[in-house]
Amino acid sequence: MLLKRIIPCLDVDRGRVVKGTNFVDIRDAGDPVELASRYDREGADEVVFLDITASHERRDTIIELARRCAEELFIPFTIGGGIRSEEDVRALLAAGADKVSVNSAAVRDPGLIATCARRYGSQCIVIAIDAKRTGPQAPGFPAGTAAPGDERPAEASRWEVYVDGGRVPAGLDVVEWAARAVALGAGEILLTSMDRDGTKDGYDLELTRAVSAAVNVPVIAGGGAGTLDHLAEVIESGGADAVLAASIFHYGEYTIRQAKEHLARRGIAVRL
């Protein structure tokens, strides 16, 4: 039976791990590869590295990170952040990354998803989506205006895609964008709720449910984990195939093993 995954996410700034709270407050937490190896030993199923400086500088540091991980890490790892072109994707995969996660560049040029999926396979193309709740309002349209082709009830919740590290609204509906990305060849969706990220109030279950129902590839839920029950809820009622979390693991509130055991006790199939 295919097992549900727990994935610690490491934000990396110039080769060091940091974690932003709501993308603002940042603390240093060490060497990314050592931290990832520790998570491997604790039972993490994968690791995601998000380079938060790559957009502006030093692409070489993330390629070096991929190379070191390929040598020292014996679980799959994904690298994201600042990936702008097919050449960036190629270089990271050649350095040993199992998957790359593309966010803003895919929104600006959806053809990039198709090109990379065709060339390297869907299994290594993760599309990351930063989602912000807009209420019933259709993203990119004036309040009270229905988006063409949107058949959901007018009062249904909607979320807007944000790019550039959550700074810029893209005018796209999250559920529609996820479905389109998968149709173009995305192999997984890494879905982060900006409203919940850093709050520890739990994942946005409604958002995760809406995206999971719209795509036939795994959905990794991110943003908002504060307790082990939050991890279980987003799998059980959000339909997530994997859960991403950062601070609850980084600062030692829970170990990955405790999280796995908690999920197993609730009847969720995990690797122990």
Binding site: M1, L2, L3, R5, D45, G121, S122, Q123, G187, E188, N216, V217, P218, D241, R271
Partner: peptide, 10 residues
Amino acid sequence: AKVPHIGWNQ
């Protein structure tokens, strides 16, 4: 089944 088969399996 969803193809490719990706992930941890028994």
